[in-house]
């Protein structure tokens, strides 16, 4: 039983990275495919499409930071349930935000390809989704400190 609790604790520690990586991979893939398609249709401005398509990669970076913070607390019988709860739920939030950010970026690329003047505005939905990922990231760090305490 003790080993199971410890295993769950380690799942909580690594979940933000693993799920964040899954989300970022899907999000970047979707946005990257849209960027590739857009490059077939336009004559210039390829760089901004490729730059945008990397936007969903931030979630895995947040996941790495959370992983180091949670692993710094140390996995024990007492901390494992808290680590599982915070780590797993943060990982899920990061994964979904990366996937949906990828779709928002794809829509942004499609819109700005046809109408370059809306480029700045069309990034807004993707930026808002990024904001939600940042919420999950920041409050995971804050709550992580409470487990340590």
């Amino acid at each position: 039983m003790e080993n199971l609790i410890l295993a769950l604790g380690w799942i909580g520690v690594f979940a933000p990275v693993a799920l964040g990586a899954v989300g970022s991979a899907i999000g970047c893939s979707v946005a990257g495919q849209a960027a590739c398609g857009a490059m077939l249709d336009v004559e210039s401005g390829y760089g901004k499409f490729i730059g945008l398509s990397a936007m969903p990669s931030s979630q895995v970076i947040y996941g790495i930071v959370i992983m180091f913070t949670l692993s710094g607390i140390g996995v024990s019988d007492n901390s494992a349930p808290g680590l599982l709860g915070i780590g797993l739920l943060t990982g899920i939030a990061l994964m979904y935000s990366a996937i949906y950010q990828g779709q928002a970026v794809a829509a942004c690329i499609n819109a700005s390809k046809n109408k370059p003047e809306v480029f700045g505005l069309s990034i807004a939905p993707a930026a808002i989704v990024e904001g939600f990922a940042v919420f999950a990231f920041v409050f995971a760090l804050v709550l992580g400190q409470q487990i340590a305490a």
């Binding site: 979707v30 946005a31 495919q33 849209a34 590739c36 398609g37 857009a38 249709d41 046809n114």
Partner: peptide, 14 residues
């Protein structure tokens, strides 16, 4: 499902 992204964005707007 995701592979339509390339095709749709490669089509010029009508």
């Amino acid at each position: 499902e995701n592979a339509y992204y390339t095709l749709v964005t490669s089509l010029p707007h009508i």
